[in-house]
C-alpha cells in the first residue's frame, strides 16, 4: 500500500519514530474511519437481526423459536475471528472490487460486517429478550384491560419499555463491536489495526512498533470513550422522567 509519497518518506526518515507516526496521520485517520463505518454497519445489522430475534425468543414458539435460539447459541459460542474467516472464505461473495480512497476490499468488508453484525445480533437478541421478560406482567394485563389486542399491547406498552431497558446492554454492544473490529485484521481489512501493522512493516520501520500501537490504542480508547459518553447522553435524553417521590 502506498503510504506516503517518496518525498514525504525521505523527510520522515530523518526524524524520530513519533514523527513517523504523526507524519502518517492520514493513513491512521482513514483506518479509524473504516473502523467506525464497520462498527456502524455491524451494529445496524445486529439491531435489524437482533431485535426480531429477541422478540421471537420472548414470544415465539415451535421451530422458529428453536431455530433462532440455536443460531444464537452458535453465534455466541464461536470466536469472532472464526466467524470472520468463515464468512470471508465460506460465503461465495462475488468479486466486488474495492473502494478507491480508503482502499477497502468490499468482500472483506462484507464478511466482517456479516460476522460482527450477526454475532452482535445474537447478543442484542439476548438483551432485548431479557428486557421484554423483565417487564411486569401487570403492564400487559392493564393494556389488555382497556381493550388493546395482544399485538397492540406488545407494540404500544411492552416494546417501548423494553427498548429503553435495553439501552445499557446495547451500549455494551457498541464498545464490544468497536473493539472487535480490530479482529478484521485476520482477513486483511484495512481498518485501524491493519493499517498500523502496514506502517511498521515498512522496511526500517520496526523501531516504530511501540509508537504506532500506542497511538492507535489511544484512538480506540478515545472512540470508546466518545461512544460511551454519547450514548450516556442519549440514554438520559430519552429516559422516562423519574421523580423524587
Amino acid at each position: 500500500m502506498a503510504v506516503a509519497a517518496p518525498a514525504d518518506l525521505a523527510a520522515v526518515l530523518q526524524t524520530g519514530d513519533w514523527a513517523f507516526v504523526l507524519g502518517n496521520w492520514r493513513v491512521l485517520l482513514l483506518g479509524a474511519v473504516v473502523t467506525v463505518v464497520l462498527m456502524a454497519t455491524s451494529l445496524t445489522l445486529g439491531f435489524l437481526a437482533g431485535f426480531p430475534a429477541g422478540a421471537v425468543e420472548a414470544y415465539g414458539s415451535g421451530w422458529t423459536k428453536e431455530l433462532v435460539s440455536t443460531a444464537g447459541v452458535v453465534l455466541r459460542g464461536t470466536p469472532i475471528v472464526v466467524l470472520i474467516v468463515l464468512f470471508f472464505f465460506g460465503i461465495p461473495v462475488p468479486k466486488l472490487g474495492s473502494v478507491p480512497v480508503v482502499d477497502v476490499r468490499l468482500s472483506a468488508f462484507l464478511a466482517a460486517t456479516l460476522a460482527l453484525g450477526l454475532r452482535s445480533g445474537a447478543y442484542q437478541s439476548q438483551v432485548f429478550r431479557g428486557a421484554i421478560q423483565s417487564i411486569d406482567e401487570g403492564q400487559l394485563e392493564a393494556a389488555r384491560s382497556v381493550g388493546l389486542t395482544h399485538r397492540q399491547a406488545v407494540r404500544h406498552v411492552i416494546f417501548p419499555q423494553a427498548v429503553r431497558r435495553s439501552v445499557p446492554g446495547f451500549q455494551n454492544e457498541f464498545t464490544i463491536v468497536l473493539k472487535d473490529t480490530s479482529v478484521a485484521f485476520a482477513i486483511g481489512l484495512a481498518e485501524l489495526l491493519t493499517r498500523a501493522e502496514n506502517l511498521y512493516l515498512q522496511p526500517g520501520r520496526d523501531t516504530a512498533i511501540m509508537e504506532v500501537i500506542i497511538v492507535i490504542s489511544a484512538v480506540y480508547f478515545v472512540l470508546t470513550f466518545a461512544t460511551n459518553r454519547t450514548l450516556d447522553y442519549l440514554g438520559d435524553a430519552f429516559s422516562i422522567p423519574e421523580g423524587s417521590e
Partner: peptide, 19 residues
C-alpha cells in the same frame, strides 16, 4: 479503563511486537 477501552489484539501486538 485503559485495558477495557482498547482491543485485546492491539494489547497482544503491543506486548509481543512492541515490547
Amino acid at each position: 479503563e485503559l485495558i477495557r477501552g482498547t482491543p485485546l489484539l492491539a494489547q497482544l501486538f503491543f506486548l509481543y511486537f512492541g515490547l
